[in-house]
């Protein structure tokens, strides 16, 4: 007799064990590589919490992760894989920038709306393409989304370094967008901006959509058991396309929010990691939109910790990244394992 509660208990224990394992590995690495391990550890764990600047930035870097995590969760809930997050974030951010640059004199509300919309549509179209291919020719969306996204990264790179390059700046970046489009900072001196409020609302809406609406129900049924869904008269083809559109839209939005909130320009490679980490965030959150928020914060925390240890203690950027990767690796591996187990059961 299977009992769901004990199942959850096992999952929680497993997560705890993984976390402790990750922590141990981290300890060992820091002790080996750092001259002053105590200090390094302090800055790694407590660093992000020691002042307003670090704390705010930590929350700020969770913003795009929440959006990409949600995007992935949507796709996973319907048993679709979107591996093109990187490219969708990048293209979305670029589209938002391009719109803002095209109308520097527009009003704030109008400009921001149009620019966000452009990002959302761009992301949705890119991911939707993979959904469309799958529906039409059964192309594996896992491969196609990855390939399309990779190609797009180079195309966007070309725009940024070519026609959109800011000649007055030595970095490979576009010009800054007009100031009225910048999101308001809410926690100075950090970069944290108002969009965090909206992102949390989006997560709650996503939860509501998935679990409390007609369409969410159909989407989830197609995800857990497509044969069951088809048998019950649900148009399964529709839910190959739709979750990819949602997923892409959220990724595009993540790019736009980063540009308008944090960087104010689209610089080359700004989306690096946002797409991939979104997958890890969704896996840890077990595709629950609400759980995506703490999962994204956890990722942001580890990232901020690594940065703080690097700045304040004696470890180099490489070591900080290695420590960070080991933690991510272990946690993601565990989450993927659970996910595959679940998927195998479902399929």
């Amino acid at each position: 007799m299977k009992v769901n509660r004990s199942d959850m208990f096992v999952t929680a224990i497993a997560l705890l064990i993984t976390l402790s394992a990750a922590f141990m590995v981290m300890l060992v690495m820091i002790f080996i590589m750092s001259e002053t391990p105590g200090e390094t550890l302090f800055y790694f764990f407590a660093g992000p919490l020691t002042n307003k600047y670090y704390l705010g930035n930590m929350f700020n870097s969770a913003i795009p992760l929440i959006l990409t995590g949600l995007g992935i969760a949507f796709a996973f809930r319907s048993s679709m894989f979107n591996l093109g997050g990187e490219g969708q974030v990048y293209a979305g951010g670029f589209a938002a920038t391009a719109v803002c640059l095209a109308m520097p004199a527009a009003g704030a509300f109008f400009g921001i709306t149009v620019s966000l919309l452009a990002a959302v549509v761009t992301g949705a179209v890119i991911a939707g393409l993979s959904g469309f291919f799958k529906m039409k020719w059964r192309t594996d969306e896992l491969i196609s989304s990855f390939l399309i996204s990779n190609a797009l990264i180079y195309i966007v790179d070309n725009f940024i370094t070519g026609p959109f390059d800011d000649p007055g700046n030595n970095l490979l970046t576009t010009s800054k967008v007009a100031e009225q489009f910048w999101f308001n900072k809410i926690f100075p001196p950090s970069n944290l901006d108002i969009s965090i409020v909206f992102v949390v609302i989006i997560a709650i809406l996503a939860f509501f959509y998935l679990f409390k609406t007609h369409q969410g129900y159909e989407m989830r049924m197609c995800g857990v058991n497509p044969e069951f869904a088809r048998y019950g008269g649900i148009n399964v083809g529709k839910y190959i396309m739709l979750p990819m559109l949602w997923s892409g839209a959220l990724h595009g939005l993540a790019g736009a929010v980063y540009v308008l909130g944090t960087s104010h320009a689209c610089f080359k490679g700004f989306s690096g990691g946002m797409g991939w980490n979104g997958i890890a965030v969704a896996l840890i959150a077990r595709n629950n939109p609400i759980a995506v928020i703490p999962a994204a914060l956890f990722f942001a925390y580890i990232e901020a910790g690594a940065e703080s240890a690097m700045i304040n203690a004696d470890i180099t950027i490489e070591i900080a990244s290695i420590v960070q990767s080991v933690v991510f690796f272990l946690i993601t591996a565990q989450a993927i394992y659970n996910f595959l187990k679940y998927r195998r059961k479902a399929v």
């Binding site: 129900y217 989830r220 049924m221 857990v224 069951f228 048998y231 679940y342």
Partner: peptide, 13 residues
């Protein structure tokens, strides 16, 4: 088990 029901989904759903 595969067509008539979705095992991981609640009785209600």
């Amino acid at each position: 088990l595969k067509r008539g029901s979705s095992l991981d989904t609640s009785v209600k759903e």
